[in-house]
Design a protein around this nucleic acid. Structure first.
Lengths: 128, 128
DNA sequence: ATTCACCCTGGAGTGCGCTCCAGGTCAAAT
DNA sequence: ATTTGACCTGGAGCGCACTCCAGGGTGAAT
C-alpha cells in the first residue's frame, strides 16, 4: 500500500483510487475541477496512467480535503503551482489553513468535553 | 450572553438565535426536522417564545452538529428523550458519537502534522 | 393612519461534494 | 467471434444542511 508500489508504466485509475483512498469517480471529478497538478498521462488507448508523483499529489489533496479545505480553495492552491516563484503564497495559504484547522480542532475539543460531561451524567444516572 | 439572561416571558426567536449562535432560519428548520425537545411555547399572537431550557437544548444541538453528528442521528437521539427509561440508549448514542469524534480528531491531527511538514519545507525554501 | 421591525408559514432554491448513468471504446480471455 | 471487464465522456442526479422568498399578520412608534 505504499506509494513505491507504482509500476513504471503507471497505475490505472482504479489502482490510483485504491492507493489514495478516493473513488474512481472522485479522481475524475477532482481532475475536472482542476485539482490535478498536470492532467495525467494517457495510455495508447486513452486511459489515465498515474505516476508515483501523481499518487503523492493525491495524498496532498486528501490531506487538504479531510482537514476541511473546500475544493475552490484547493484549486487556487494548485494554480499557484503553475506560477513560478509562488512559494511564499503557497506557504501563506497553508499557514492560513493551519490556523483554520487549529481553530476547528479547538472547537471540536471543547464540544467533546461537553459530550464527556453529558456521558458522565448518564453514567451516574444509569449505574449510580 | 449567558443562558441566565433569559427573561421570564421567554426569548423571541431572534433572541434565541443570538444566544445559540444559530440563525433564525436554522432554528425554524431544526424544529421542522424534529430536533426540539418540545415545540416552543407561543405568544398570544403565535410567535415562538424560548425558555432558558430551550436555549440550553439549542446548545446541545450545536454541540452535536459541530462535532459532525448528522441531523438524522440527532433526531433519533431527541426521540429517545420522549421515551421513558431510554437513558442507557441515549448514553450509548453519545458514547458511539464520542468514539467517532475521537477518530475524526485523530485523523485531522495526523493531516495537520503533514501540513506542518509541508509548511516547514516551504519555510526552508523561502527563507533558507 | 401608516410606517417599521419583527414574526409567521409552506415551499422553493442553493452550494457543496460527490456519485451515478448512458452510451461507447478497447484489450485480453474463451 | 463474442464475451468480459475496465476504461472513457458529458451530463444528470443526489443527500445534506441550510437559506431564502412570497405573502401575510401583529403591535409599537410616529
Amino acid at each position: 500500500m505504499t506509494v513505491t508500489e507504482v509500476p513504471a508504466e503507471g497505475l490505472t485509475i482504479s489502482g490510483a483510487a485504491e492507493l489514495s483512498g478516493l473513488s474512481v469517480d472522485t479522481l475524475r471529478y477532482y481532475e475536472k475541477e482542476g485539482l490535478s497538478l498536470h492532467r495525467p498521462e494517457r495510455s495508447a488507448s486513452g486511459q489515465r496512467r498515474y505516476t508515483e508523483d501523481d499518487v503523492r499529489w493525491l495524498g496532498t489533496l486528501v490531506m487538504l480535503r479531510r482537514t476541511g479545505m473546500p475544493i475552490r480553495d484547493i484549486r487556487r492552491f494548485v494554480e499557484l503551482y503553475r506560477v513560478d516563484g509562488s512559494e511564499p503564497e503557497r506557504m501563506a495559504i497553508l499557514e492560513a489553513h493551519r490556523e483554520h484547522v487549529l481553530e476547528e480542532l479547538n472547537e471540536v475539543q471543547t464540544h467533546l468535553a461537553a459530550i464527556n460531561r453529558k456521558i458522565d451524567h448518564y453514567k451516574k444516572l444509569v449505574n449510580g
